[in-house]
Amino acid sequence: MVDKAISLSDLVAGQSACVSHITGRADHVHRLEEFGVRGGTKIKMFRPGNPCIIRMAGNKVCLRSDDLLRVLVRPV
């Protein structure tokens, strides 16, 4: 269960996770990675929903994903 990657939107407030991978158009994924959201990034859900707010190293980020761009995470 812990090993399975779930969608970012399935995280509840306060839950910590690690980004597993991102699916979507190559340039959109690239933009997300440049922003610091990439495989291996440790995150914590601050405000779930769409858009959601996630806590990352040193900052908070607001992110809206859709069917074309999905962030998959592994809860820790």
Partner: peptide, 12 residues
Amino acid sequence: GETPPFLLELPS
């Protein structure tokens, strides 16, 4: 046109 992902940093 395609919308790029909506990303926004929430500064302290």
